[in-house]
Design a protein around this nucleic acid. Structure first.
Lengths: 232, 232
DNA sequence: GCAAAAGTGTTCAATGTACACCCATGC
DNA sequence: GCATGGGTGTACATTGAACACTTTTGC
């Protein structure tokens, strides 16, 4: 059955990969972790990290393994995003990919190039200035941004992106980066504080030339107790 | 790498299927279409319809094909649900399935058994009285109910389940069946009518022993214009 | 004292929720 | 005339949105 002049042998089985969109906030920008491909197809292009699923692991475990290989981060917000399976998404082969996305704290990150044969560089890229990407990875990143936005409107997933201690202004900035809108300072603070998910710390930032800001942390206990409510 | 005493050969490739949870409302019950398996594994058990993905078709097309094979319905609400890939979900083999769910009008349905070699019966089952199911299909159905509920709270997907002409009470019943709650009649009507998605018809039901009810249809023009808003 | 960011309340609009009675029909 | 489901409005609470000035600090 030919599409686009490519003849597919209907007997061949599909290959299945897991790709993970790993996001964080660095330097007031929402950034995504990309790897530079060493092999064809798309040799030299940037791509989101991914790999084949081992026969003995489930999809979540495969995504966690890829995440850990690249960042040595564990215990993070990871969610299945969507499965992309256009016959033409992977040149000369049929590869279906189950995409995941993860939000991680920049301070926890330890970027690693574990396999020089597959990947030459691992680097953060601002989502607003993405280089040309391999396969349909641009579409996958855009979809993960959309999903993150939807999630953020329901539950404070932003806590995964911030350092353990943060100011309300930093929290608001992370919301604004993800939602791509400006928010009203007073309304934002009112809403956040009314949810009882923040713990007020008796610590303040030490900055120069301006008023110190109070630090907060996420109250993991109330956050856990609201997990069912937030994540359903 | 053995799990549960099963040895997986890490070199073997995965198989990928698409399974479709097809839902409708019949006799005041939310029903799901099940097929009876003729072959092992799970011979004789009920399962949701599914099949292998052809190498030349994308995932949506595979789901549409399966839907059409079983119901000869086209043009319906179909959405990718989630991809299930536990190594143990399919006995003695690694089969990853990309699950879809569809909402269809009972009046449009023409159930078909297209392939007697794979399936012996095709039948609607109330979601509240499901028989034992093959594989992880119970989990998949539950997940699709949850997703339908979430969707219904955002947009009137229920229009896919009702006949073209319906009364407000019927519409309310479909909401109550999906959301598993009772709704206030006056508030429900107020909300529905304020959304401008219903077209008031100058027709009434002809029933016995009670006041006739006005019929409505969904205004597909405003519904389409709100598609971006509803489905994002 | 001034620049720079932190912090703080009120008003109004919109939306959701609770609630009870009359109406039209077939028998 | 009565049983059955159809149809209707108001009052209150909750939530979201708009909006501007004072405070603290380092220099």
């Amino acid at each position: 059955m030919p599409i686009n002049n490519i003849n597919f042998k209907e007997t061949k089985t599909h290959e299945v990969t897991v790709d993970v969109v790993i996001m964080t906030i660095v330097k007031d920008e929402l950034q995504v972790l990309l790897v530079k491909r060493v092999n064809e197809p798309f040799k030299g292009r940037w791509a989101i990290p991914g790999g084949f699923i081992r026969l003995s692991e489930n999809l979540d475990d495969a995504a966690l393994r890829i995440l850990k290989e690249k960042t040595s981060v564990q215990n993070i917000y990871l969610e299945q995003l969507y499965t992309f399976g256009d016959p033409l998404r992977y040149p000369n082969s049929r590869v279906i990919t189950c995409a995941y996305y993860a939000l991680i704290r920049a301070e926890d990150i330890n970027i690693q190039v574990t396999n020089k044969e597959e990947v030459s560089e691992v680097q953060w890229h601002s989502v607003s200035k993405l280089p040309p990407l391999a396969f349909d990875h641009k579409e996958i990143i855009e979809y993960s941004l959309k999903r993150t936005r939807e999630r953020l409107e329901l539950c404070p997933v932003a806590f995964q992106l911030l350092p353990k201690k943060f100011t309300l202004t930093e929290l608001q900035k992370s919301y604004e980066l993800i939602l791509k809108t400006e928010l009203d300072k007073r309304n934002f603070r009112k809403k956040m504080l009314s949810q009882n998910i923040l713990r007020e710390l008796n610590e303040y930032t030490k900055t120069n030339s301006k008023r110190p800001a109070q630090l907060y942390s996420f109250d993991t206990i109330t956050l856990d107790s609201k997990r069912g409510h937030f994540f359903s």
